Simulated assay, not measured.
Amino acid sequence: MRRSTKARLGAVVAVISLGTALASGPPAAAAPTGGSDVRVTCNAGSVCGWTAYNFGGLGTTSAAVASGQCKNLSISVRSAINHSFSYQRFWTNSNCTGTSYLLAPGESATIMGAGHRGLGGF
């Protein structure tokens, strides 16, 4: 009789524990930092930009652009992170003309002024 009482008590404890876990729900997902678009991850070697200041709004990611080359961006960038290993220059025009903003490797800019539509290597 003693064994079955222990077995029942163990089963009751297991059911209560499971009920408590189910009632509390899944763990909350971590909120993105800096208000960035969670769809954009800026990995090593990448250059990332956002449509709003302070890494907010829509985002885009790109491989670093080689020196002397130009890449048109799909969005107008107002804040950026350079996780590449070379200097990258954001240009106000999509053909890498106009006013530029230079970011060193590992550097970020929360407020770049006017939107930038071109990305070039330096």
Rank of each mutant, 00 (worst) to 15 (best):
W50E: 06
R2I: 09
A30Y: 03
A114L: 12
V38L: 10
Q88G: 05
A11W: 04
P105N: 08
D37C: 10
V12S: 01
V40F: 03
L58D: 14
G115Q: 04
E107P: 00
V65N: 07
L73S: 01
S36M: 09
E107K: 10
G34A: 00
S74E: 13
S67R: 15
T110L: 09
A114D: 12
G59R: 14
R39Q: 08
R39M: 11
S74P: 07
I111A: 08
A66Q: 14
G118W: 02
A23D: 02
S17P: 00
M112T: 00
S62M: 13
V38Q: 10
I16R: 01
V40A: 07
V13M: 11
L9F: 02
N72G: 14
A63V: 13
A31T: 14
A28T: 12
S17Q: 02
W50P: 10
Y101F: 13
Y87R: 10
S17C: 10
N43A: 15
S46E: 14
M1V: 02
S86P: 00
S100W: 00
N82M: 05
G35Q: 03
R78L: 06
D37M: 05
T5A: 13
T92V: 13
V65F: 05
G98N: 06
T61W: 03
N82T: 05
P27T: 08
S74W: 05
S76F: 13
A104T: 01
A31F: 09
L18Y: 04
S67M: 12
H116R: 08
I75H: 09
N82C: 05
V38R: 13
N43Q: 15
W50T: 12
A7V: 08
G35V: 08
C48L: 09
L58F: 07
K71Q: 15
S4W: 12
A31S: 13
L102I: 02
A52S: 10
G10F: 09
G121W: 06
N43W: 12
G59M: 04
V77P: 12
F85K: 10
C70A: 04
Y53A: 15
N95H: 05
T60L: 14
Y87Q: 06
Q88N: 09
G19I: 00
V15M: 04
V77H: 09
G19S: 03
L103E: 02
A80I: 07
V13H: 02
S100L: 02
S79R: 03
A31E: 15
G68E: 07
L18Q: 02
V13C: 06
T51M: 07
F90M: 06
G49F: 13
K71R: 15
G59A: 11
T5S: 12
N54H: 13
A52F: 08
R2L: 10
R39A: 15
L103A: 02
N43D: 15
R117L: 11
G118E: 11
G57N: 08
F55D: 08
G25K: 11
C70H: 01
V47N: 07
G59V: 10
S76H: 03
S4A: 07
T51P: 06
S100H: 00
Y101G: 00
R2G: 05
Q69N: 15
A63N: 15
M112V: 01
S24E: 09
C42T: 08
L103K: 06
T33H: 09
L103W: 03
L58K: 14
S62V: 05
I16H: 04
I81V: 13
A7T: 03
G49N: 12
